[in-house]
Write a protein that binds this DNA or RNA. Sequence first.
DNA 1: GTAACTATACCAACTAGTCTGTTATGTAAA
DNA 2: TTTACATAACAGACTAGTTGGTATAGTTAC
Lengths: 203, 203
Amino acid sequence: MPRSGTATRQNILDAAQAIILQRGFAGASIDRIITGAGITKGAFFHHFPNKAALAEAVISRFIDAEAALFKDICIRAERLSDDPVQQALNIIGLYADALDNHPEVVEGCLYASVALQRSEYPDEVSKIAADSIDQTTAQLRPYFDAAIRAAAPRKKINADDLADMFISVGEGAIISAAYRKDPSIPGRQFRTLKAQLELLFGR
Amino acid sequence: MPRSGTATRQNILDAAQAIILQRGFAGASIDRIITGAGITKGAFFHHFPNKAALAEAVISRFIDAEAALFKDICIRAERLSDDPVQQALNIIGLYADALDNHPEVVEGCLYASVALQRSEYPDEVSKIAADSIDQTTAQLRPYFDAAIRAAAPRKKINADDLADMFISVGEGAIISAAYRKDPSIPGRQFRTLKAQLELLFGR
DNA sequence: GTAACTATACCAACTAGTCTGTTATGTAAA
DNA sequence: TTTACATAACAGACTAGTTGGTATAGTTAC
């Protein structure tokens, strides 16, 4: 058995993600990444056939982590209450809590990075990022739909716009956090959103 | 007097902004920009001493336009009503209208571009972008403050978080719009926000 | 034994920026 | 009215360094 390369691979992905969020994908040169990871060019191309494959690996890992977090939050929200309104509110509250525990959000978000450099990332990467956003809103929509049906909201509102609002607040708050260098902003923004939806659903 | 170069300069800025929003700042090479603008390298470096100066010009122009739009909206909102709550709501509504008339928002936002490529842009550019964001929230905060004092909101909320929410929804909605290729999203998101604040202030 | 590396040399394409020239347009003296 | 001239607006070849990627020969840990 040869030695495992998984640590080195993670090392590369970590360095790549950090540099991509600081300098963009084009600015994240392979030389900078291998310097950041403390390895050589030979090691890099042993793990990734080219830069496009690296991009796909970085984004995929990020997306998988986000999807896992989101699914976990949905499960916990359902466990906390049977009431559809409370479930929807809990998803937002739990997401706020999760962001509080991840101060590295001030570094930025790879979803936003892909959106703002569509033509620089490989097409495949743009596609899987877009699919992941679609999947997240599709998962979220039923919760808001159920809440709207259960509570007769005080303002005419639809689940699509609420699901979009969830994504928008998340992405936008991370940009605000980056400007202010304040990692508490995303959590606070989701709690502000939660308070507004409590009113909307009469809580 | 020699011929005027202002049209060429605008041409360069337009091409640069479009390419920056598609590929990031590092991906927006001078060769790509001059090809996009249909000019030569000599013309480019006649107008800008280096790439950093171009970045500053592009961002400054964007910031000035945003600031002018925002100021205009504030003035119109104040004219529409003397009621502080209505003024705050009108700002959001007028901003939604303005976004409806600018379908190019799906291309992205330079504020977000700078935030997500801090280390690639010249320091001066990051600084003026951050200052501009600070100034916008500082202008917005008094409106929300006045509304809170006038209306005793139904949820405990502060003007800082509301001003941040305005920025977050704006930035986030543009990212959502880019993913969905739907320029109607930002306007709809601001209207959703407005509906929530109407409830908050008892309207 | 074999995969996981290090180290280094190399390449073609691209990068920001420089350089030397050329062209358009207005001013003013002859 | 022509002609000379000043000056900004360009054109395009050129350079030194960087880019992503390849090649190759040896070393290390399981």
